[in-house]
Design a protein around this nucleic acid. Structure first.
Lengths: 211, 211
DNA sequence: GTTCCGATGTATCAGCCCGATACATCGCGC
DNA sequence: GCGCGATGTATCGGGCTGATACATCGGAAC
């Protein structure tokens, strides 16, 4: 369950809502949208696109650009079935939506996700991470018995990381609950673009989404 | 490079320093020592053990427990070659020691790692994560342009996580520097390792990250 | 006491996924 | 004109996982 390819399929359908695209650009957008969180390879993407076409969720359109064009590009466009399928996947709030594999992608499309579903996914994710916290806690106490300060430090750090993650989710859940009673007013209203506190965007050009 | 199986091999050799063990227990210890960070499967472990035996780093000893015993267990014990190999791997401080795959395991064995090597690995890890910080920063500013508050939140959170990781490493590096002001470790005092028969830890200086 | 069940233990395999690679064109600098 | 990096599509070997099979042991339930 919750295979990598399912997550990819979901992400592709979501991205194609913005515009028809061909594989190469799709991959760039994918790795840009998902940040450094996740990188999908061509070895997954192209088969995935073919499969989506076979399922009727997208159409394949070969584009030969005018007279001189030789470079072949295959533009994929969402079908009505595809939109419907994506809407169904958006509502899907099972475990696959909050495990490590799928949470990030589902979260990235929260803008198009129903409020109740958002809440369910956030809570599912949180409880998943709370299990992990428990695991780390026992690891910490276990490594406190043996005398290995480095292993202890490792576990302690891991524990704090996951706890921090849980806190983040709790804040998000509170926000959702606060704006839930009333019909939530578009997630972008208060977003007046603050003066970018400490991140003055220094040069920092280099970006390496490939290698 | 830096395959999963290499990391596993390293971890197994390290664990076998404590005591001879059979596969099942090895796996439990592995997943306990590494906390919730990492879980190795049998599908990797057993082939790895066989390969280690073939390389002469461990010996396979079938144990039939007394008269009634039927349950077959195969106890693996470290050889002199194995110890030597592990020592060499401990000194190895190339990129494979600080990428996502290998850093945790190397760190877990810092108690047996040379001080200079510890420092090099920590710094390598940090600079690796700083690259990731840069990636996240550009992702954040990119998603600030589009108006998608959820994607922005995701990137922002990811950025903070990695920055926190970098801070943690910086503290560790400071600690290392404080307890080891000069380049040479004080020979003989708190050295964990035995006098090391003939192989007195060859210098192994250079090693740059470029390929 | 026997029956069930989870832990202990070794081992394999289908299937998924990545990383590398191949092939081809374009636009740019020099 | 020539190299070189970006754009593009596509495939393949091989590593790794998760599931599964098989077998024994200790203890709890009743």
């Amino acid at each position: 369950m919750a295979k990598r390819s399912d997550v990819l399929e979901f992400a592709v359908l979501g991205l194609l809502h913005e515009a028809p695209m061909h594989g190469y650009e799709l991959r760039k957008r994918l790795n840009a949208t998902l940040g450094a969180l996740r990188a999908f390879s061509y070895g997954s993407l192209y088969p995935c696109l073919k499969q989506l076409a076979a399922s009727g969720f997208v159409t394949e359109q070969v584009e030969d650009s005018g007279t001189t064009g030789k470079r072949s590009r295959i533009v994929y466009q969402l079908t009505a079935d595809g939109k419907e399928h994506f809407a169904a996947l958006l509502d899907e709030s099972g475990p696959s939506a909050w495990d490590d594999e799928g949470f990030g992608v589902h979260f990235a499309f929260f803008g198009r996700t129903d409020a109740a579903t958002r809440l369910r996914i956030l809570e599912g994710r949180r409880s998943r991470l709370e299990e992990r916290v428990a695991g780390f806690r026992s690891a910490v106490s276990r490594s406190r018995e043996r005398v290995d300060s480095y292993t202890l430090a490792l576990h302690q750090h891991g524990l704090e990381s996951v706890e921090r993650e849980v806190r983040w989710l709790s804040e998000l859940i509170d926000d959702e609950r606060r704006s839930r009673p009333s019909q939530e007013p578009a997630a972008g209203t208060t977003d007046v673009r603050p003066p970018a506190s400490g991140t003055a965007t220094p040069p920092l050009r280099a970006r390496r989404e490939d290698h």
